[in-house]
Write a protein that binds this DNA or RNA. Structure first.
Lengths: 160, 160
DNA sequence: CGTTATGTGATTGTGTACAATATGATACTG
DNA sequence: CAGTATCATATTGTACACAATCACATAACG
């Protein structure tokens, strides 16, 4: 019993560290991204669109890459559309899908964002090896949690 | 120029990994905490209150521990008050401060939360050494970002 | 005592984040 | 072809998260 309560303290360590780090990262990006008038999640979405010159993906594909659902992406993408960075059009071959495409303005923003990784890398102050190790640890954590989540998604209850 | 764009891809790695991991952690806690009718940030606040049996802190002190500001904590604490887990009273010695105190119900909830760390630890699937290393890496990251942030908080611009 | 500075929390507005549900299109079945 | 199932996205509601601002109280100064 006493050990359980001790864990209530220990527990706070890792899960809280992940949570606090995430918010610290978003805060650190904010002033840099403000020059591009982007929020951090908007920046992540633009990174995906910038990756391929074709730059046409459905909302669902974007959500899979960013691990975000449509309820989050739809208003975010509408704001990017308002700013003229992307277009949102129904897929003519499948009227259910909405395709996101970069505009010329959105593509041009890539030049201005080119310096962001370097500027942020300096803030992080991690050498490449340690950054790689941290990234690997985090990805394994996500993989472990997602694997556990399959039962929820597929509705396959363990007992019954 | 081409190297800068290559970094736009590499950059996505670490910052995105932190962000995605944080959301995966919150998602993983959700079903476990639902039994206690707590959200993850509410659980973090309760952990701080459970740590000390006195369990009386101001909103500001709580925000310092959790690195959250009052705009986030005030509505969160009001919801906990509505559920009868905490009380919110003005400090009689300093009418500006609002003190948060556990109720008997809030203190009792600690028993039911005792198993949460163990259940979540199983989901994480990390051995103690690796969990400790990940936690240390994340804390160093937060420290580096916060140190960089002092210039913003104190308004001491580097140039002028 | 009036004035100003500071400090603490509340309020407001914008922007995620996600569960639950609704809507409409496509695919499958008989 | 009608009925059903399924899939992709939109909509709604709740809950963070934080910047900017407001309101009030204490403190410091003349």
């Amino acid at each position: 019993m006493a050990e359980d309560f001790a864990q209530l303290l220990l527990d706070r360590q890792l899960c809280f560290a992940v949570h606090a780090a995430s918010r610290a990262v978003v805060r650190a990006y904010a002033p840099v991204l403000a020059e591009l008038q982007l929020t951090y999640p908007q920046y992540l979405a633009m990174l995906v669109l910038w990756e391929d010159d074709a730059s046409v993906v459905s909302v669902g594909e974007l959500g899979e890459r960013l691990r975000l659902d449509s309820g989050t992406l739809t208003p975010l993408l509408k704001r990017l559309e308002l700013r003229g960075l992307v277009r949102r059009d129904r897929d003519p071959h499948d009227e259910r899908r909405v395709l996101i495409a970069l505009t010329a303005t959105g593509r041009a923003l890539r030049q201005r964002a080119a310096g962001v990784p370097c500027e942020m890398g300096a803030k992080f102050g991690f050498d490449e090896r340690r950054a790689h190790r941290l990234k690997a640890d985090l990805e394994q954590l996500v993989a472990a949690l997602d694997a556990d989540d399959i039962s929820v998604r597929r509705g396959s209850r363990p007992g019954t």
